[in-house]
């Protein structure tokens, strides 16, 4: 009987010796605030620009001290502050929302410094700094030039992880009024033809509009359109106009919209053919987009044919950018 009791005692001691360190570890893990996961992951290369920046902790977030959390964007080799609009708590995660959307082909750095997050299990007070990049893959290259690359990509990523971004569009409509060379009525003296082009754009981001009159790929005439101001100006949109003389009756109009940094943010080519028998021809083309500025996973595009068709018809394929989301 005594032997039996001794045996039970030994077994109990052994069991306790096994359990106690495990319990101790659990307590230790719960008491040490740490990071479980980063999204996007550190050093990711093709992070979608609309990705949520989240940091997942090992415990519920109680409060945030935003002054210890910063976001930077690398420009010309230097990190500049990329303003944060707000930082939200979301269960065990914090969600960093920048003031403006991230840009393509940039490197971003997230830095947490000091007692930034109060967790259920204590304060996270460690230095954390990591970067990720928003490099993109050219949709045109994937779909037309190098389809093998798309095949490779689909072996690495699921269609839901691959995202295509349609460019924002800024041109609302283009109107052309073209007067042929010659008299309007029999009594008039013949005079040169002239052409007026109006371009209506969104007001956001738009600084300048450049117009090229082209024929057979050659620029015949060009110039910057001037912004219509005063009473004729419209709300939430800009109107630019430009005049040309002595241009032929058949030509291409290339409209390029530039931002304040003189970067092209939208462009459009329309074809003009003066109408037979009319001294003055006018033409207006208006644009409405479903997909402009939006991102769609390949899964969405492949499962919704009409969406895929809209994306392809509304944007130049060269302007569609592809990025991937890590899981």
């Amino acid at each position: 009987m005594m032997n039996k009791l001794k045996g039970i005692g030994v077994a109990l001691i052994l069991l306790l010796s096994l359990l106690i360190p495990a319990l101790d570890q659990t307590v230790s893990a719960a008491s040490d605030p740490s990071i479980d996961q980063l999204n996007p992951a550190a050093y990711d290369q093709n992070v979608p620009i609309d990705t949520d920046i989240r940091i997942y902790f090992n415990s519920e977030v109680r409060s945030i001290s935003p002054q210890y959390i910063q976001l930077f964007v690398k420009t010309n080799g230097t990190y500049y502050d990329f303003p944060i609009k707000t930082i939200k708590k979301d269960g065990k995660a914090i969600h960093i929302l920048p003031e403006r959307s991230m840009e393509f082909n940039k490197e971003y750095m997230v830095r947490v410094n000091g007692p930034a997050v109060e967790l259920h299990n204590g304060t996270y007070n460690q230095h954390l700094s990591y970067t990720f990049q928003t490099n993109y893959i050219d949709f045109y290259e994937l779909m037309v030039v190098n389809e093998g690359r798309l095949v490779n990509m689909l072996t690495q990523y699921a269609p839901r992880q691959i995202k295509a971004f349609a460019p924002k569009r800024y041109i609302n409509d283009i109107s052309v009024i073209h007067k042929k060379t010659g008299a309007l009525t029999g009594e008039q003296t013949s005079f040169n033809g002239f052409t007026n082009i109006d371009i209506n754009t969104k007001s956001e981001d738009v600084a300048n509009v450049h117009v090229d009159i082209m024929k057979n790929d050659k620029v015949l005439q060009k110039g910057y359109a001037s912004k219509v101001t005063g009473a004729k100006a419209s709300k939430n949109q800009f109107t630019f106009d430009i005049g040309f003389s002595k241009i032929p009756d058949f030509y291409d109009v290339k409209v390029t919209v530039l931002n304040s940094a003189q970067q092209t943010i939208d462009s459009k080519i329309i074809k003009f053919a003066a109408e037979e028998g009319k001294a003055i021809s006018s033409f207006k083309e208006s644009y409405k987009y479903k997909t402009a500025g939006n991102g769609y996973t390949f899964h969405e595009l492949l499962s919704k044919e009409s969406l895929f068709a809209s994306l392809l018809s509304e944007s130049l394929m060269q302007d569609i950018k592809v990025q991937v989301e890590d899981r």
Binding site: M214, F308, L312, S313
Partner: peptide
Amino acid sequence: SHEFEYKGNNVFVLYQPG
């Protein structure tokens, strides 16, 4: 109902899935 995109120089292109 699908409109071709004008590429300039009298060339229109349509990319059509399905």
